[in-house]
């Protein structure tokens, strides 16, 4: 199962054609919509960094089904445009730190998980997202006390990550080989 996938993503790396740009564009738009919609959900837990992170579903799907480079492009564009559209430019550095750490962890995990275990990437990705955010926050505000939020953020990351991860697993399963045809 892994071999053909690897082969395809290798192939993808070499080509930046109109089809691929369109696909990345559509997926970025999708991620952005999810991101903006999620912003409308009021904060339930008053701790910075606790949120559902639904947009990560798209990142996960792209990394697993289309390719790591496309995943990075979609992620970065979504963070930049997301912060601009929502007027949270000052928060962009936190999202970027979290998003990139999450991306790296997902990429590393991709080597050891099966497609039905994408939710594992969701969980560990969400945890590392929160970790990256808090580390940048500690650096910027020079407040090591912010680390006291870490256990809570790990718990919230596991719950939200399991949910988004499960969504990604579910989508990948339902879509079957349709992503392959899109490429």
């Amino acid at each position: 199962m892994m071999c053909p996938m690897r082969f395809q993503s290798e192939k993808m790396k070499n080509g930046l054609n109109a089809k691929r740009i369109t696909l990345d564009g559509i997926l970025t738009a999708l991620a952005l919509i999810i991101f903006i919609v999620e912003l409308q959900i009021p904060e339930i837990v008053p701790i910075p960094g606790v949120k559902l992170g639904l947009a990560n579903v798209i990142t996960l799907i792209v990394i697993f089904e289309i390719g790591p480079i496309d995943g990075l492009i979609v992620l970065i564009l979504r963070i930049i445009m997301g912060s601009m559209f929502s007027g949270r430019i000052m928060a962009m550095i936190y999202s970027m730190a979290g998003g990139l750490l999450c991306y790296v962890v997902t990429l590393l995990l991709k080597r050891i998980v099966t497609k039905s275990q994408i939710w594992v990437c969701g969980v560990l990705g969400a945890i590392s997202h929160n970790l990256g955010q808090i580390m940048v926050a500690v650096l910027i505000t020079q407040t090591p006390e912010l680390f006291s939020y870490l256990p809570v953020l790990v718990v919230s990351g596991m719950i939200t990550g399991a949910f988004t991860g499960w969504l990604a697993t579910f989508t990948v399963k339902k879509m079957g080989d349709r992503f392959g045809k899109l490429r």
Partner: peptide, 8 residues
């Protein structure tokens, strides 16, 4: 992409 970031 980098330019876009700088613009922000």
């Amino acid at each position: 992409a980098i330019l876009l970031v700088f613009c922000c």
